[in-house]
């Protein structure tokens, strides 16, 4: 019984990580209807960026991410402004193919620079610290921080989207590009800003990716799939739905792993397919749309 309770708790905590992966993807789709096939690879890229900043400056990853975040904001802004804005339009193929190409470039670029070796972000004692809950169940501090960070990210994103002028501009642009322009909104700038913001979220996701487990240049595509599954399970259009989707996916994976360790990933995918078959609009779809 404890084993199952433990699986549930760990599943919810793992869901925090997936929600962090998914929040960036959700943001990109929400504002510019962009489905970014390189999302997972960009998370891995950010993890390497934190690794390098932490290593070169001898910093703790938590400090390094604060330094890497603005850099990543600029990279995201530039990527959208220079490259991805050119691909957006009625035709679906260009954004998909360009981000697919980016995925291959990032993956192999990282392989070239860092080799296929596994890496890990090191943060001392916190990595292994845990809070005992009694009954043989303990919560790892890092997994807990992951979930809390995911909640914090979603609260902040919701505040930006629903309480600030730029958030209004994000939503207006997503509703109607042409009329948004009539409001004096510079579309390509808004898109670039949204991508910059998504990259900051990605930096936070990358921090926990690297703290929780080993990573190497090839694990990006799987992270894209988890992020995507969380977004679809939760239902498009709501950040809280994305968090819920992440938790559902995390639970499915830990429960699957509890039955047979080799079934962890498969159980997550199957949960996604079941949700898709039964509730194609996700578990928590936005009322309108």
């Amino acid at each position: 019984m404890t084993g199952w309770l433990d699986a549930l708790i760990q599943g919810v905590l793992l869901g925090g990580l997936y929600a962090l992966f998914a929040a960036g993807l959700s943001l990109m789709f929400g504002v510019m209807r962009l489905v970014n096939l390189a999302h997972g690879d960009i998370i891995v890229l950010a993890a390497f960026a934190i690794l390098v900043v932490a290593g070169k400056l001898g910093l703790d990853p938590f400090v390094a991410v604060a330094l890497a975040a603005p850099i990543l904001f600029v990279i995201g802004f530039a990527l959208q402004h220079v490259l991805l804005n050119r691909t957006l339009g009625r035709d679906l193929l260009p954004p998909l193919l360009v981000t697919f190409g980016l995925s291959i470039i990032i993956q192999n670029g990282l392989l070239q620079i860092f080799s296929a070796d596994s890496q890990r972000l090191r943060s001392g004692a916190i990595e292994t610290a845990s809070i005992p809950l009694g009954g043989g169940i303990a919560i790892g501090v890092v997994p807990l921080l992951t979930l809390l960070s995911a909640i914090a990210v979603i609260v902040v994103l919701n505040m930006i989207f629903y309480r600030t002028p730029i958030g209004r501009a994000f939503r207006a642009t997503s509703d109607d590009l042409e009329v948004a322009e009539l409001m004096g909104i510079d579309i390509s700038r808004i898109f670039a800003t949204a991508m910059g913001l998504a990259f900051v979220v990605i930096a936070i996701a990358a921090l926990y990716l690297g703290l929780r487990a080993n990573f190497d240049p090839t694990i990006g595509p799987a992270r894209l799939l988890y992020a995507f599954e969380a977004v679809i399970i939760g239902g498009l259009g709501s950040f809280w739905g994305t968090l819920a989707g992440g938790v559902v996916l995390g639970l499915a994976q830990t429960i699957g792993a509890r039955i047979d360790p080799e079934w962890q990933i498969l159980a997550g995918h199957l949960a996604f397919l079941v949700v898709l078959a039964l509730r194609p609009r996700g578990l928590f779809p936005r009322a309108q749309d």
Binding site: V35, L37, L96, L224, F228, E262, L266, H269, L270, P280
Partner: peptide, 24 residues
């Protein structure tokens, strides 16, 4: 059930499911 770009990633998930099943 997935449209447009989401269809793309959905097919990828299915391929992963096939891979994981055959690995078992």
């Amino acid at each position: 059930r997935l449209r447009g770009a989401y269809f793309a990633i959905g097919t990828w998930v299915v391929a992963e499911v096939y891979r994981l099943v055959f690995a078992q």
